[in-house]
């Protein structure tokens, strides 16, 4: 049994008369501590997978087991609790609360979790000790994304989900962010799932899930993932 298992998961939307299938019999397994990249073009259904995994959406059928809990039958409240305690998110546009400092943004997440890390420590870990009391607007994109990561990991989630985390970042900053994510996986044993259309990121992953046209096209595992520094795109 994997740490995360998605079995024959379907996601269908009813749009007017026609049915759109966003996920068509998606099945995969992710082991604990792995850095996974879900790769696919726009509309391949990768975000749907991420949403389902993150408890932000429910699938239409199929099982989603996270650490032995099948969250596919969760109600809204259970899902919220799941998000609260077990999932950390990192988004393309950081989604920091503009009105809160870096530290406060982290604290915002920590507030509601019981076994959380110290926000200041986490921020120090992501190299933002000196920017702790700055507001997002005062931070660069990379810094903001690091704050977002700090916010996501500070609550010690079972799973860290990242949606195009480098999408809005320049090359260098993007690499810095990826580095942190990889470090999370490697050093802290956090299970990290990165959703991206950027195939260049595939080499750094322990496991790469290729999606196309709402289906899992292939799953490949890298026995030796590459270092971020070697990465070129």
């Amino acid at each position: 049994m994997g740490y995360i298992e998605m079995e024959h998961s379907f996601k269908r939307y009813q749009v007017g008369e026609s049915e759109i299938i966003a996920n068509n019999d998606v099945s995969f397994t992710i082991e604990k501590g792995e850095l996974v990249v879900i790769l696919g073009a726009s509309g391949a259904g990768k975000s749907t997978v991420l949403n389902i995994l993150g408890g932000m959406d429910t699938n239409s059928s199929g099982k989603v087991v996270i650490d032995q809990q099948d969250i596919s039958h969760y109600d809204r409240k259970q899902l919220t609790a799941y998000r609260r305690n077990d999932v950390g998110f990192v988004f393309q546009f950081y989604n920091l609360v503009a009105n809160l400092t870096a530290l406060e943004n982290v604290e915002l997440a920590v507030e509601i979790v019981e076994d959380a890390s110290d926000p200041a420590t986490v921020l120090t870990d992501v190299g933002l000790a000196h920017r702790m009391h700055n507001f997002p607007a005062q931070l660069s994109g990379g810094e903001q994304q690091r704050v977002a990561i700090a916010r996501a990991v500070a609550k010690n989630p079972k799973i860290l989900l990242c949606d195009e985390p480098t999408g809005a970042l320049d090359y260098h900053t993007g690499k810095q962010v990826l580095q942190i994510l990889q470090d999370m996986s490697r050093k802290n044993g956090t299970t990290v799932v990165i959703v991206t259309h950027n195939v260049a990121l595939a080499p750094i992953a322990d496991r790469v899930i290729h999606m196309h046209d709402a289906k899992v096209k292939a799953i490949e595992t890298n026995s030796i993932p590459r270092d971020i520094a070697e990465l070129e795109w």
């Binding site: 993150g54 932000m56 809204r76 409240k77 919220t80 609790a81 799941y82 998000r83 609260r84 305690n85 999932v87 998110f89 989604n95 920091l96 609360v97 503009a98 009105n99 915002l108 997440a109 509601i112 979790v113 916010r151």
Partner: peptide, 16 residues
């Protein structure tokens, strides 16, 4: 709406 979505995603219950 983004801010609210964020905190929702962060796992704030509806009443929160």
């Amino acid at each position: 709406i983004r801010e609210l979505s964020t905190i929702k995603v962060l796992g704030f219950f509806d009443p929160e």
